[in-house]
Amino acid sequence: MTVRRFNSLLLLALLTVSGSSSTKVVGRAGEDVTLPCKYDITSNGPTEVFWNRVSESLLGFNHQIIYSDGYKVIETTRASSRYHLLGRLEDGDVSLTILNTTEEDAGRYGCRVETSGWLFNDEKHLIDLTIEKVSGSSSTKVVGRAGEDVTLPCKYDIKYYGPRAVCWGRGSISTYGCNNQIISTDGSKVTTGASSRYQLLGRLKDGDVSLTILNTIEEDAGLYGCRVEIPGLGNDEIHHIDLTIKKAPSTSSTPTTETTEQTPQTEQTTNTSGQVTITTSSNSINSEQQEAGGGVLVFMVRVLLAVIALVTAGVATVIGRRWNQHKIPQQQQSSTSVRFSSNSSAVELQLLQIDAGGNSDCVYEV
């Protein structure tokens, strides 16, 4: 394995010095890019593949970034979780995909497919990668509302790298560190913070270093950058988030009128002389609209009481006639008085019991 790596690096150095032609690939910051590399697996069968980053120095190489034995990627050789062989290895497609590219990913890459025979029989591919800078170089956009909390996402593979230092800054991420740094963490706890409104509320132990801005204002809008420090030259993971803050909706207060309704109460009392007094009262209703309709209610109550009085008088008359038929003594006389009152009105009914001659005397007062 060590000899093969040395041969791979030596070959890339020779190719660089000799000015070998290369394939040019152009990507955009924040997007994924694929560097092509394939071989004829039907002729050679599954074989080892090496990917390296190539410098412009005399030696022409710096370090290996990923390796496959022809069947799978050997994880211990993966220099960054952003490097993947997403092609069909069983078909000989060993193209390199770089996730979430940054400007630091630009440069020359080398792919070597080992074949039987001498070193110079191996298949060699050089790819020159150019990364175009995009205004706000971010594929992530977040929209918040003034006065509310908002979270800007940023995560990394903590199982692979372990806890890593992370910084957040306003504006585009620079080559090193964070511009206008607002908060940072050593991977286990927050170490610096420019304001108490900036919080890392995600689970740091799971690699969630998302930034939460509390009680946002319109001035919080703009570009933010998250840098995760990964060992190796140009391996840092960089995320850009473009935050838009919308104005809070205007609130208008509408006057409200409280209305209190109470059910009319009826009291009935009977005195020793047989006089029955029925009193109906209605409490005040605290509403201008109901006060306007109070007169109608009083009128209806009056009509109802009058009807009750007439019905009571009729019933009393029938009862008197039946008593007369049973020859009740002439001297026996009884009087019944029914009185109704409701606030400003009163209904009074007096019934004089039937006399000996069968005559009746009824007096109604309304």
Rank of each mutant, 00 (worst) to 15 (best):
R4I: 10
R5Q: 07
R5F: 09
L11A: 07
A13N: 09
V17D: 12
T23I: 15
V25D: 00
V25E: 00
V26M: 12
G30L: 08
T34R: 05
T34C: 11
L35Y: 02
D40C: 02
S43Y: 11
G45N: 04
G45W: 05
N52A: 15
L58W: 07
N62H: 12
D69M: 11
G70W: 06
V73Y: 06
G92I: 11
D93H: 05
V94H: 02
T97K: 01
N100G: 12
A106K: 04
Y109Q: 03
C111Y: 03
E114Q: 10
I127V: 15
I131S: 06
S137K: 08
S138A: 12
S139C: 10
S139M: 08
A146R: 01
V150C: 01
I158M: 09
C167V: 06
T185D: 01
D186M: 07
T191D: 02
T192H: 04
S195G: 06
S196Q: 10
R197L: 07
R203V: 02
R203P: 00
D206S: 09
V209A: 15
L211H: 01
T212R: 04
L214D: 04
D220T: 04
Y224P: 06
L233P: 07
D236L: 08
I238V: 15
I238P: 02
I241A: 12
L243P: 00
K247A: 14
A248K: 12
T260L: 13
Q265I: 09
T266R: 02
E267V: 13
T277I: 11
S281D: 13
S284G: 12
I285G: 13
S287Q: 05
E288H: 04
V296W: 08
M300I: 10
M300K: 13
L305T: 11
V307Q: 12
I308Y: 11
A309Y: 08
A309V: 15
V311N: 14
G320T: 02
R321V: 11
I328A: 14
T336Q: 14
S341K: 09
L349M: 04
Q353K: 08
A356I: 06
D361E: 13
